[in-house]
Structure formats: C-alpha cells, structure tokens
C-alpha cells in the first residue's frame, strides 16, 4: 500500500498541473492541491486502500475547486477576451495562439473545463473521466462535445476578427 509521502512525491506534480488547468491563479492552484492533500492525509488509510487512490484524490481536487468557487460569491473572474486581433501577428505567433486557446478554455463552464483538462491533458477516456467526476460516461461525452463545439465556434470567430483586423490595417 502506497504511503502518503510516496503518493505525494509521485503524483503531487501532476495534481498541481491539473489544478493549474482548473483555476486561473497558479499560486492558488498549489494551495488548492495542498488543501486536498491535507484532507487526504487525514483519511489516507481509507484512500490508499482503494483500487485507484488517484481517482479519488482527483475527484477531491475537482470538488475542492467547485467548493472554492461557491465560497467566492462572484466566482472566479475569467477574462474571456483575448489579447486582441493583432496578438498573433507578432513573431511569437504560436505562443499567442496557445495563449488564446487557453483563454477560450478558461471561459468554459467549470465542468466542461474539467472534462477538457482530464481528456486532453490527463489523457483519460470518457469512462475514466466519469469515474473522477462521479457522473456517467454519457454526461462526460455530452460535456466534451459541447466544450469542443464552443471552442471551435469561438476560435472561428476569433480568426474572423483577426482577418478583419488585418484587412483594416
């Protein structure tokens, strides 16, 4: 049975990176993970006895994030706008594209964002994501499809704005 310290040393970095995808503030992401791990520490005997403690801890992380959002009455403030039509015209265009995509992801509803992070960062399939989120695989698929549709639509709109801006230059 894996000890708490072993688990944190092995899985901690991945948890923090996942948290960075759930929450905007990187420092807050580490605090979020620390909070989750502290709670896991208290219950480690039970958690470590599970078939896959990682599923449980990741679920704790998702729920902790949801709880954090609820406690902040106004919710996490997400900047939906990107850097402007000209942002990708500089020499670091690829970096700007990634940044733009990230901002679009941030603008997704929390559950869709969690699904996107678990699918495209953690590389989990719908069944595994469903286990983490505590919902059905069908729900996960629906959330994922909606998220992709939204991202595509907004990315297309952004590209159109970029083209328009270039034409006006």
């Amino acid at each position: 049975m894996v000890t708490f310290d072993e688990y944190v040393m092995v899985r901690g970095p991945r948890l923090v990176r996942l948290a960075r995808l759930l929450i905007r503030d990187r420092h807050l992401a580490e605090d979020l993970v620390q909070e989750v791990l502290a709670k896991a520490f208290v219950r480690w005997a039970k958690i470590s006895a599970l078939d896959d403690p990682d599923v449980y801890v990741r679920r704790m992380l998702i729920n902790q994030h949801a709880s954090y959002r609820r406690k902040r009455s106004s919710g996490e403030i997400v900047t939906a706008a990107w850097d402007g039509p000209g942002a990708s015209t500089d020499a670091n265009g690829r970096s700007a594209e990634r940044d733009a995509m990230w901002r679009l992801i941030l603008d997704l509803p929390p559950k869709q964002r969690a699904v996107v992070a678990l699918r495209f960062y953690e590389d989990l399939d719908d069944t595994a994501i469903a286990e983490v989120l505590g919902c059905s695989a069908v729900t996960v698929r629906t959330q994922r499809m909606r998220a992709l549709k939204t991202l595509r639509r907004r990315m297309t709109a952004r590209s159109a704005e970029t083209v328009t801006a270039k034409e006006h230059e």
Binding site: M9, G12, R20, L21, R26, R98, M101, W102
Partner: peptide, 21 residues
C-alpha cells in the same frame, strides 16, 4: 498543446508535502 503549455512549470514538492502534512 495549450493545456500542456499552461500546466507546465516547476512544482515545489518539498513545500507541497510539508504543507499538506
């Protein structure tokens, strides 16, 4: 790629472990 880019970065494991404990 965007997610990996955003998630990337060092994690201070000693701080995380000590703080969590």
């Amino acid at each position: 790629t965007a997610l990996a880019d955003r998630a990337d970065g060092d994690v201070r494991m000693d701080t995380l472990l000590t703080g969590a404990r």
